[in-house]
Computed example of a mutant assay.
Amino acid sequence: MQSASMTNASIQRDRARLRLLLRLSLAGVVFTTVVILIGVWTRLVDAGLGCPDWPGCYGRLVVPDAERAMAHSPDAPLEAFKAWVEMVHRYVASALGLLVISLLALGAGLRRRSGYPWRTSVALLVVILLQGAFGAFTVTLKLWPQVVTLHLLGGLAVLLLFLWLHLSLRRFAKGAAAPGVARRRLTPLWVIAMLCLLLQLALGGWVSSNYAGIACQGFPTCNGQWWPEMDWSEGFHLTQTVGPNYLHGQLHADARTAIHQGHRIGALVLGLALIALALRYWRENLQRPWLGGLVFAYGIQVGLGIANVLMWLPLWLALLHTAGAVALVLLLALAVWHWRESAVAAEDSTRRDKEWVHV
């Protein structure tokens, strides 16, 4: 009787722990979205170098007064608003790291259970640590575009891992994660759509980090021309010198125009990939809501991008454009998840997708 009572108590503890893990992982998705938007806001108000050092601000954990800041870094005068914006970003990012560590600690007792997503939890910790390093490099390398772009992509990677962990925990809680459960493999169309979105996100980060958001004025033309003067080699020169202060950018106008135009072309390619994906799988009832939402979100995102150009990149609209990118990432990830979890044979779908790609 005592043994059975202890077993029941252990089961109840595991269930309570699992419920907490589900809530925390979902909170991680929401919190990461907030951190990404705060990071973008920090950049848009030119506060990325509000504190010239890292992890503190002028050597302190809170923003000091002007006298102490001057004593610490006489070549970087304190701008209190920008310093506080940067430090708030660091505080919330640190809190996100603590959330990841909490998830790992809570899940340690379940890691040997079949189907528990322990590897995803560890991967999340590794990525959040790398993200912290990129945050430091963003400051110490003075907004070097390569690092800024990777920092944005890293934030989206954290978001995806939180979502994947939450979905995996839900599957584990339902007992549907036993070995041998058939899951469909990704077909070529899915892979193409994912790669197109990744490329477009990288291009968006490159536009932002090189301050090319309004390098093209007007739409659908760019500076009054369909194909203006552009310097592609300089715009996408990925071995730029480390050292200058990249606040407000270092590239000339034609290079920034090439970056902006590349982002527009990427948006067109992404749209074609998403529409092809939706048309191919529209007849599948389980996929229709996700694919419909994905195409709809893409349309909204295109509209936001055009509005940003026509309205000269207002802060609130630029933040909405970033939120739209986050929505695309989440919707595509959810569509991929439900595709893989659908108990349908993969071979016929793979064959048909290859035919679509070749056509």
Rank of each mutant, 00 (worst) to 15 (best):
G50D: 05
M70F: 13
W54K: 04
R13T: 13
A4H: 03
V34M: 14
P64I: 02
D14C: 11
R13D: 10
L24I: 15
P64Q: 12
L24T: 10
D53T: 11
L37S: 12
A27S: 14
R13C: 03
S10R: 12
A69H: 00
P52E: 02
A69M: 05
R17P: 01
V29N: 13
G50P: 02
C57P: 04
Y58V: 05
A9Y: 05
A47I: 03
V62L: 15
V35H: 11
S5W: 08
V30Q: 00
L44G: 06
V62E: 11
T7E: 14
L37A: 13
T32W: 11
A69I: 06
A69G: 06
V29F: 05
G28V: 00
G48P: 11
W41T: 07
A16W: 05
D65A: 01
P55G: 09
V45D: 01
G48W: 01
I38Y: 01
G50L: 00
A66N: 02
I36C: 07
G50K: 00
V63C: 11
R60D: 10
D53P: 06
G39A: 05
G50M: 00
N8K: 10
D46R: 05
P55V: 02
M70W: 10
V45S: 08
R19S: 10
R17C: 07
P52C: 07
D46K: 06
L20H: 11
W54N: 07
T32H: 04
L22P: 01
F31D: 00
A47K: 08
L61V: 14
L44E: 03
V45C: 06
L21K: 03
A27Y: 13
L26S: 08
R68N: 12
R15N: 12
N8R: 13
Y58G: 04
T42M: 13
A69L: 11
M70S: 11
C51D: 05
A27F: 15
R17A: 05
R15Q: 13
N8T: 08
G50F: 00
L61W: 15
G39Y: 09
C51P: 02
G59V: 03
R15L: 12
L21Q: 08
R13G: 00
T7N: 12
S10G: 07
T7W: 02
L37V: 15
I36R: 12
M6D: 14
Q12S: 12
I38G: 01
R13L: 13
G56C: 08
R43V: 04
L61G: 02
